[in-house]
Design a protein around this nucleic acid. Structure first.
Length: 226
DNA sequence: GCGACAG
DNA sequence: ATCTTGTCGC
């Protein structure tokens, strides 16, 4: 499939004008937090089957309150800074199936830590008009220094063009690599970090994202087996 | 021009 | 992103 990247860039720039980096909800009223993850049957092949899961937990107990899954044939390759155009179609299918009212969505990927402020978490948050946060496992954009090797150490990440603060490198556990946190939409930079820290449950990744990933792994095995 | 580049 | 065993270190 051929792609007009310049046209997609313009779309991202237009969407970025709708970004809101202020808190839509009171941080203490957050109860249901969702993790979103996507897998591909054959990531090296286009088109291929994509599967997305959303797992919602009650932050007071870390218990699962809802989990949904969706499948969709995807014909868009992985291109850095254009991830949303590959994964969002399946994610939105899963999103439609949700019945519970989610307070915050955490996406596996960046929010505004992106050259046009439109990582997949921001793209999702603008399209659905929800509160969203980006949580990447490796960096994509921005300048930062590695946080010290201790639990919950973090440093700001800066936009190299403007020197604005646009996110955090957060070491969630000692002796693990940092993760990369930024607002998706409708939340401030500071509270993005706060929510992620509140979502940790002893593992490197926030619990909703970790559960969404595990859910996909289990489903994938069943799919292959029979 | 070169390197870097979420999943 | 997927697949997989072993190995090292807190």
């Amino acid at each position: 499939m051929e792609i007009d990247l310049e046209s997609l860039k313009k779309q991202q720039i237009e969407l970025s004008k709708k970004l809101i980096l202020k808190d839509r909800i009171n941080i203490d009223e957050i109860r249901y937090i969702a993790g979103i993850d996507t897998t591909f049957l054959n990531p090296y092949q286009n088109p291929t089957l994509a599967i997305s899961s959303i797992v919602v937990i009650d932050i007071k107990s870390f218990e699962i309150v809802e989990k949904v899954l969706a499948e969709k044939e995807i014909d868009f390759p992985y291109v850095p800074t254009f991830l949303a155009f590959r994964e969002l179609p399946v994610i939105l299918e899963a999103y439609k199936k949700l019945e519970i009212k989610v307070d915050v969505f955490i996406l596996d990927g960046q929010g505004i830590l992106h050259p046009r402020r439109m990582g997949i978490a921001s793209h999702f948050g603008v399209i659905t008009d929800t509160v969203s946060i980006g949580c990447g496992k490796t960096p994509l954009y921005g300048k930062y220094q590695d946080p010290p090797n201790q639990d919950l150490a973090y440093n700001f990440i800066y936009d190299p063009k403007t020197n604005e603060k646009i996110g955090y490198a957060l070491r969630t556990k000692k002796n693990t690599k940092p993760i990369f946190i930024s607002p998706g939409n409708n939340i401030s930079i500071e509270n993005s970090l706060y929510v992620i820290i509140k979502s940790l449950n002893g593992y490197k990744l926030p619990e909703p994202v970790r559960l969404a990933h595990n859910f996909l792994s289990d489903y994938r095995k069943k799919l292959i087996g029979g």
